[in-house]
């Protein structure tokens, strides 16, 4: 199912993230059913799937937030669940659907995230300033996060994930409710980061975005990997969106809502 590709930066770097047969069941529902993936170091990896496919659950298990029922996750060879503190140093995480400490100001929140990782205060202060400027949040730096708009909240969470310059970035739905200008800025930041040797995993259900932005992609549905590899391999000449629909299925073949016509 997986298709390890030679790392773009050459050499024999181990995969940035290696997921081996993870599974998770919530009560009766099997959310993730034996997923295995290799994310090559230096790749820009897209994770796509319909709603409820198990993207967030998989990423939570891969990053040490949710204990898998079975399987193993390695970040640059470090087992996330055996050595969590060591593995988490290598990762930056933008989780989806969790709250932030939103009674802190944006500046405080990013600082907090840096200090929690044991960084020294001067480095933190310097990077906070850079991050706020890069994400266009400088003029709202002192505003409480609870008063931020949805897009600003996403951006400040991204800043909190970037502050320790991780070698692997895991971003769950990073572009949701982010305005187009900010989204373009974020894409530039991420591309620079990948070009300098970092690895990015993004989950999204915007196929266009993934096709343009990522070099690798995995399609997940029903808690399983349907396809994985370079974007060109997976889409095989079709657009990613068409390929996705072909893989996942579920398009309604009926004539649609006949009554939903204005004339």
């Amino acid at each position: 199912m997986t298709n390890p590709i030679a790392p773009s930066s050459g050499g024999t770097r181990p995969p940035a993230l290696s997921i081996r047969g993870i599974a998770k069941r919530f009560g009766e529902k099997i959310a993730v059913d034996n997923i295995s993936l290799d994310v090559p170091a230096g790749s820009f990896y897209g994770l796509v799937g319909p709603n409820g496919a198990g993207k967030t659950t998989s990423l939570s298990m891969a990053t040490g937030l949710l204990r898998p029922d079975a399987g193993q996750v390695l970040v640059q060879g470090v087992d996330v669940w055996a050595k969590p503190l060591e593995a988490k140093k290598l990762m930056g995480l933008l989780p989806d659907g969790v709250r932030l400490f939103d009674r802190l100001s944006g500046e405080q929140l990013v600082t907090y995230s840096g200090l929690l990782r044991g960084m020294d205060k001067d480095t933190v202060a310097e990077r906070v300033k850079d991050l706020l400027a890069a994400l266009d949040l400088t003029k709202d730096a002192g505003t409480l996060v609870v008063d931020y708009s949805a897009g600003m909240t996403k951006k400040i969470a991204l800043a909190a994930a970037l502050i320790h310059a991780p070698s692997l970035l895991v971003l769950d739905e990073p572009f949701e409710s982010v305005d187009p200008v900010s989204a373009a800025n974020i894409r530039d930041i991420l591309h620079d980061y990948v070009n300098s040797g970092g690895t990015v995993i993004v989950s999204s259900h915007v196929m266009d975005l993934v096709q343009r932005m990522c070099d690798h992609v995995a399609v997940i549905a029903g808690g399983r990997v349907l396809a994985a590899g370079t974007v060109d391999e997976v889409r095989g000449g079709m657009s990613l969106e068409d390929k996705f629909v072909e893989l996942v299925g579920g398009r309604n073949q009926t004539a649609g809502l006949q009554w939903l016509r204005t004339s």
């Binding site: 100001s105 002192g142 505003t143």
Partner: peptide
Amino acid sequence: YAGSTSRSAGKMGFF
């Protein structure tokens, strides 16, 4: 509508 004015950086409070 959560009224708020944007405030710039510098106030680190207890941090």
